[in-house]
Amino acid sequence: MSDNVTEIDGSRYEAEVLRSAVPVVLDFYSTECPPCEALAPKFESVAEQFAGRARFIKVFRQGNRELAQKLGVTGSPTLVFFKDGVEVGERMSGEEIKKSALKAQVDALV
């Protein structure tokens, strides 16, 4: 994982996501999930492009069941977008997440 992507566990959700000064993209991922493997390099690449302007945070779903449940996330990968402590925009999930679409959505937030 590069410097531009951080991994957190559920206990850091409030501090890192809700109280972030910049928009956040939260990525729920799982093991045994090829679409998650496919998303990882795209996520890294977009994170690099928005370094300093948005935060890109990963959460390992199997280890953070409660947070996934709280946000109603039932599939991996799922990207949830936050600005000023509230969820904004459309979630993205599954194998069809395109780098250009992710970039466009983050662009609209920063």
């Binding site: 090829p34 779903r61 599939g75 599954g94």
Partner: peptide, 17 residues
């Protein structure tokens, strides 16, 4: 409900259930 209860990938999402 895509990713909020509906899935097309059992290996990816089975463990959620």
């Amino acid at each position: 409900f895509k990713g909020r209860g509906i899935s097309w990938c059992a290996t990816c999402d089975g463990a959620y259930f």
